[in-house]
Design a protein around this nucleic acid. Structure first.
Lengths: 142, 142
DNA sequence: GCCTTATTGAAAACAATTGTCAATAATGGC
DNA sequence: GCCATTATTGACAATTGTTTTCAATAAGGC
């Protein structure tokens, strides 16, 4: 059990009527503190080190609640879409290391003019956009 | 069996040593002519109308070969990542209708300066990027 | 501390995809 | 055009990732 964001997430779960159980606290701490994207299976593996009896199903159920409260978001990658990471404040985009999964948020794109053009040209109403960068983080370049 | 791109795909399969069978021709025609993203199950459903004996496994295997030859690409969406569509020439991005799956390619983004900034700020080497727009097509807006 | 009821873990169910295998059919050589 | 080789097919089984079911447990308001 570590710092702020973990406690914040626990408060939010509690505020929404969910109970704070030992397995749930561990899953939350792992995901809240992780700098890298994690799949349910990876979360489970990490969680078992601290709480051997925890079931994979509990991991899935906890992730489901975290996603419902917008505390985490699913991460899509060329290799698969089974990973999660702490959600960003506001509208942010992800830069992900293809090697180790280390993730950073960034903003600063201005796609509005492009979206306006494309919308006009195609007749679509554009409602949402995805922008993601993939690469190698400082450690993995070496 | 329809126009040009279908025949082009068949030639390419043949050129790569794959045989042109009846079920394969039908899957290829369906995907090559489709304006919308299709899941393997949808391709199978459509293919059975023309060739009732076709198995879902054959659809999977044909899609696998088309992807290997870069004739199709997998499409990632918020709701799932099981769809495919004919690949674009050059580097293009997708605009997809959230309702019916109708897809259009577009280009014209210039993300190089942003990528350079982010790369410098984070220490990552950026190798790849994804940009996708989601919305409602002209028909589905109504 | 008690009582209600959400949560748990185990097992089963389910869905999407991949592997196995004998029968079939496409292709290149004749 | 016919044959032999061998890729491909469809049925079935196996796998993988995820969800459901259910009795036992434990969280949290009182």
């Amino acid at each position: 059990m570590t710092t702020s964001s973990t406690d914040d997430w626990l408060s939010q779960l509690h505020a929404n009527g969910y109970r704070l159980t030992a397995p749930r606290r561990i899953v939350i701490d792992i995901v809240a503190q992780s700098q890298r994207v994690l799949s349910p299976a990876e979360v489970h593996r990490l969680a078992r080190k601290r709480y051997p009896a925890i079931g994979l199903v509990t991991v899935y159920r906890t992730l489901e609640k975290l996603e419902e409260l917008s505390l985490i978001q699913r991460v899509h990658q060329p290799g698969g879409c089974h990973a999660f990471i702490a959600a960003a404040e506001g509208h942010q985009h992800l830069l992900i290391c293809q090697q180790c999964g280390l993730a950073e948020y960034f903003s600063g794109d201005n796609l509005d003019p492009l979206m306006a053009n494309i919308g006009r040209d195609t007749g679509y109403i554009i409602k949402e956009h995805w922008l993601q960068f993939f690469g190698l983080c400082e450690d993995c370049r070496k």
